Amino acid sequence: MPHLPSRTWIRALVGIAVALGTFEATRRYRQLASAPALSDTSRALGIDGHHVQAGPWRLFTRSVGAADAPVVVLVHGLVISSRYMEPLARALADNGYRVLAPDLPGYGESATGTPRRVLSVEQLADVLDLWLSACAIDKATFIGNSYGCQILTALAVRHPQRVERLVLQGPTVDPAARSLLPQLWRAVRNGRRERQRSSAAIGRIDYAKAGVWRVLGSIRHLLHYRIEDHLAAIEAPCLVVQGSRDPVAPPHWGEAVAARLPKGRLRLVEGATHTMNYVHPHSFAQLIDDFLREGRDASEVVR
């Protein structure tokens, strides 16, 4: 009968395997967290980056487009930074806009030097207000994805003078799934549907930069803020853009959001998923352009 290794040897081997796994995970985590602000792909898209001091916050801001073009601001979703907004930013710049996309405090390139405290939805909206002042922008059009829609809702309610128009794409959170496990399951389903053009690699970088504590705190704020309680107070014209295959913010929820907005309307994009700004940037940019041109045409008629 073959000699079996003793329990001591088995424990030693398991310990070595765990140690090696931990070492490799730590090495990979540090590698992701130290990824540069702008990749070769970013530069190929013409994306520039700079820091803006907004009150106590030093916010990294991506930008693209002619300096004298109409300004559009992109607001990122949960934990992920404006890094995944780059395809949409390029598409909007090609349509004649000056696009700015800040990393909010604690996320992406604005993670360094940020207090451990995780800001709430309302606090992030107030930071956006400070950032606008620092950028010498009185009023702008804002486009948000997912959690960014909650932040923009808070901005439009707390600082209505800042908002010209709003575009809410895949707004969270559907009240039917306001708990952790359903949200995680929906995110997994969306990831499967976006496999052919996934932002997962970017997400891993941004989650590493934010850290576990901020990820957990951000999820808590996501689930706590009830966007449906604030939509009726938004004064600005608002376009809700909804993917027909979005499991995170299902189509029926997009319809409910648009119905609660005083000046809201819904555009359903057949076949689109949750991260439309990354997966379908050109189709999304065209919808935004149509919406904004409509507003400019109306103002010209008034004159």
Rank of each mutant, 00 (worst) to 15 (best):
G191S: 09
V212R: 15
W213C: 02
L222N: 14
S198L: 07
D229G: 03
A232N: 07
H224G: 04
R193S: 14
S218L: 10
A233E: 12
R220M: 10
Y225N: 11
S198F: 00
R226G: 08
R195E: 15
I205N: 06
E194W: 02
S199M: 09
V212G: 15
I205W: 01
A201K: 01
I227R: 03
R226H: 10
L223R: 09
R226L: 10
E228S: 00
A232L: 04
V215P: 05
A201T: 00
R197I: 03
Y225P: 06
Q196S: 12
R193Q: 14
V215S: 13
Q196R: 12
R220A: 15
Y207M: 06
I234K: 09
G191K: 03
D206W: 00
R204C: 01
R195K: 12
W213T: 06
V215N: 11
A201C: 00
I227D: 11
D229R: 08
W213P: 05
V215H: 13
R192F: 06
L223I: 07
R214A: 09
R192E: 13
A201V: 00
G217N: 12
R226W: 02
A200G: 05
I205D: 07
A210S: 04
Y225M: 13
R195W: 07
E228R: 00
L216K: 10
S199L: 11
R197K: 11
G191H: 03
E194C: 07
R220V: 10
G217M: 11
V212C: 12
Y225L: 13
S199V: 04
G203D: 04
I227P: 06
R214T: 06
I205P: 05
A201D: 06
I227H: 05
S218Q: 14
D229N: 09
V212Y: 15
L223H: 08
S218N: 12
L216G: 06
A232D: 11
V215T: 13
A200R: 05
Y207C: 01
S218V: 04
R220L: 13
E228Q: 02
Q196I: 03
A210E: 06
E194L: 06
